[in-house]
Design a protein around this nucleic acid. Sequence first.
DNA 1: ATCCGACCTCAAGTATACTTGAGGTCAAGT
DNA 2: ACTTGACCTCAAGTATACTTGAGGTCGGAT
Lengths: 147, 147
Amino acid sequence: MKGGLSVGYVSRRTGLAVSAIRYYEEEGLVHPGRDRGNRRVFRRGDIRRLSFVMIAQQLGFSLSEIRAALDALPGGRDPTREDWARLAQGFRASIDARIAGLASLRDRLDGCIGCGCLSLDRCALYNPEDTAAQLGKGPRFVFGAAP
Amino acid sequence: MKGGLSVGYVSRRTGLAVSAIRYYEEEGLVHPGRDRGNRRVFRRGDIRRLSFVMIAQQLGFSLSEIRAALDALPGGRDPTREDWARLAQGFRASIDARIAGLASLRDRLDGCIGCGCLSLDRCALYNPEDTAAQLGKGPRFVFGAAP
DNA sequence: ATCCGACCTCAAGTATACTTGAGGTCAAGT
DNA sequence: ACTTGACCTCAAGTATACTTGAGGTCGGAT
């Protein structure tokens, strides 16, 4: 392929299955062009884009969260370092929030060693609703204020 | 209920839907008893157990990973603080690995601001060898040996 | 005694993130 | 010209993590 990269090549470079790459296109995570024979044509930057998808996903982000982050990158051309910098800035809050949540869980678990988990009404792990019930649905207190 | 907690009570305390709690039992994450009328009977410690499930899940751990962590807790009685301490110790490596992965992604993205992302063979996002080692999963030769 | 609400099971449905398979096209090498 | 391999679409299947619905049981209060 002269002007761009084939789906097979991108698959080999990223380790992603061809079917996965096609699925990511359907989900709006990559936007390859097409050649005269209707075959997908990727840019070099798409490999980095897909690498980012893989890493972020491995770290627990959903495809829609990742798509939201990738919206900082331009669609019509390979991203510059400024484009990636913008993505980094936008995504950084999500990453930091997740790190904080994990650190909080770790500390809570560590705290359980000494906190006397037998006192049920005090234990942070036991009492999520007091701190967090108002923050919305799902397990919430990890992301909110620390008790 | 005299000897224990009903599924409805546990649902209200945790914020989990009754159907979700039943599903978690099916998946081996909780092990309630039954009363004479075949109704589920939970222990007080099960609320903490389910809170842990909710938090860990929100942070990107799968139910099977969480089940593996929960295996450190005893099945036949309410866990003591030593039991939770054992879980904490076993799970801490997973948490730390995930934190490290997130921090690494964040730093890579930050690095992109100055790294000159246009040089593909230098970009950290394009070449995330060492991130992958920690994450361990997946086919991913981007993550493993250099492309 | 009867009624209601909370519980039960089991089957099927939903969303996410893909893979697999059938059936067909296209371009490059022999 | 012909064959091969890489590509295409579209439908259906899989695993995870649940929810929803139908139909039924049980126990405490009236």
